[in-house]
Design a protein around this nucleic acid. Structure first.
Length: 465
RNA sequence: UCCUCCUUAGCUCAGUUGGUUAGAGCAUCUGACUGUUAAUCAGAGGGUCGCUAGUUCAAGUCUAGCAGGGGGAGCCA
């Protein structure tokens, strides 16, 4: 085939350049027709839509069209024409077809009919070829890009926090061990424990559960920074909202207090959702139609509405005054349960809510204490349908106050000496938050299981692909 | 990890109080059809009923264990 530049299907679908010679390459979604004419729906990933390739049977060797089956990969050279049929405005009159890769119809798992999301999870290596996962993955990309763009435009610097960590003081849950020791015959200490001083790093190491502490180090020099990387939690969580490997965005800002922190979180989320609405229209429309008829309306509402801000104490008062009966009782000092958060966000206000001023005993050691000595300057952004999407706080910048909390919570000082140094040398008020990337994608796509918004989910008992 | 439901053809599912040869739609294959829209019409092939044990004359169906999956909860992002 003569070498001309490949056209992207997304561009051709918008083109009015009828009569021009075009070259498309992509995967066949379906073929139909009769003994005179074949219609091939071709997709190349550039858009959710397929382009219709029209092949006059007489113009092609029988062997070629026989190989054009659902799932096969082909190149088509032909003429872009105005469609004679209903349902599409442009199509390609095929002049030449080259088959790159066949797909045996007897064994190719994807059919030109709908599949359950559960089935597609079992063939995660092929599911990007479906409309749904094409849409989700394009939106996922757009959100990752928009995150970097937002922070860059706001003068933040992207910090690469380490993935392997020797500190387990991050306090965010169970961790995966990283080791090169011989699993059959590891060196042991006299007391029977494994001797990690002989391991690769000379100490016991784990996969990170948060880049926050390192982000704080960056903020104490560069002012405004963020991390965006993979995060690992070895919790045995079996829910549609948890992964063992997920991606997290953690901005950290010098000289921000808790109110600046909330302002940033709200502006950031609205920017991202607006970006999706403006740049992922076709994909969102597909997801809205197929999975969640209120998706686009809900995204528009979140962008338009001001988030409600209230304190934990006020939330507890609302819950008690509601007269609802709860599976878990509401009383000041215990953490809010999913049912409580859902009531506040979905029933009482019907819009995103930022809760602040949590009791110190249910929050992490690094959060700044309020003047009351009972609550900390934490803030959680709660979204309809998915609950907590952001968790953040103003950090304790006072060395003595921080040391007091570390001792209260039995965190070994020697493990966090470097973190404490930031408070010892040129400490500064600062704040930050963490955004679960997949939780954001859940909200933006309207999907209901987090395993369907990451290409290859890692969950308890599943590390396939 | 706890509670609960599910596992039958490639996919989505039906299968009665346990009873002869386990069904349907879609997909696939063959044929028909001069432009189709998840094309249509006709025909055909396709099953270790998740696995293991048990109860019974007889198990897809009942019981137990195990595995995998869904939903809810906890932990959290």
């Amino acid at each position: 085939m003569e070498h001309i530049r490949r056209n992207k299907i997304a561009d051709l679908l918008k083109s009015k350049n009828f009569g021009s010679e075009v070259l498309v390459k992509g995967w066949v979604r379906s073929k139909r027709g009769n003994k005179n004419i074949n219609f091939i729906a071709l997709n190349d990933g550039s858009a959710i839509h397929t382009i219709q390739v029209v092949a006059e049977v007489a113009n092609f060797p029988e062997e070629v069209l026989k190989l054009v089956t659902t799932g096969s990969c082909i190149a088509v050279k032909g003429t872009l024409v105005e469609s004679m049929g209903q349902g599409q405005s442009v199509e390609i009159q095929a002049g030449h077809i080259e088959v790159f890769g066949t797909a045996d119809p007897e064994t190719y798992p994807l059919q030109k009919k709908g599949h359950s999301l559960e089935f597609l999870r079992e063939i995660a290596h092929l599911r990007p070829r479906t409309n749904t996962f094409g849409a989700v993955l394009r939106i996922r990309h757009a959100m990752a890009f928009a995150i970097h763009k937002y922070f860059n435009d706001q003068g933040f610097y992207y910090i690469h926090a380490p993935i392997i960590t020797g500190s387990d003081a991050e306090g965010a849950g169970a961790m995966f061990r990283v080791t090169t020791l011989d699993d059959k015959n590891p060196p042991v200490l006299p007391d029977g424990h494994v001797d990690y001083s002989q391991d690769f790093f000379g100490k016991e190491t784990k996969l990170t559960v948060s880049g926050q502490l390192e982000a704080e180090l960056g903020a104490m020099a560069l002012g405004l920074v963020y991390t965006f990387g993979p995060t690992f939690r070895a919790e045995n969580s079996n829910t549609p909202r948890h992964l063992a490997e997920f991606w997290m965005i953690e901005p950290e800002m010098a000289f921000y207090d808790i109110h600046d922190d909330m302002d940033l979180a709200e502006d950031f989320l609205k920017y991202l959702i607006r970006y999706a609405l403006e740049n992922c229209h076709d994909d969102l429309e597909f997801l809205d139609k197929m999975y969640d008829n209120e998706l686009i309306a809900r995204l528009n509402e979140v962008v338009a509405d001001k988030f409600v801000r209230l304190t934990y104490t006020e939330a507890v008062e609302i819950l008690i005054a509601s007269g609802q009966s709860w599976e878990f009782p509401v009383d000041w000092g215990t953490d809010l349960q999913a049912e409580h958060e859902r009531y506040i966000v979905e029933k009482h206000f019907g819009k995103p809510v930022i809760l602040t001023g949590y009791p110190k005993d249910i929050k992490a050691f690094y959060m700044k204490m309020n003047e009351d000595g009972k609550t900390v300057r934490a803030m959680d952004v709660l979204f309809p349908k998915i609950g907590e999407i952001i968790g953040g706080s103003q950090r304790e910048e006072n060395l003595d106050a921080l040391l007091k909390r570390i001792h209260e919570m039995n965190i070994p000082e020697k493990d966090v000496w470097w973190y404490l140094d930031t408070r010892k040398f040129g400490t500064a008020p600062h704040a930050g938050f963490g955004l679960g990337f997949e939780r954001l994608i859940l909200f933006v796509t309207g999907m209901s299981n987090i395993r369907d918004v990451i290409p290859f989910p890692r969950t308890p008992k599943n590390a396939e692909f």
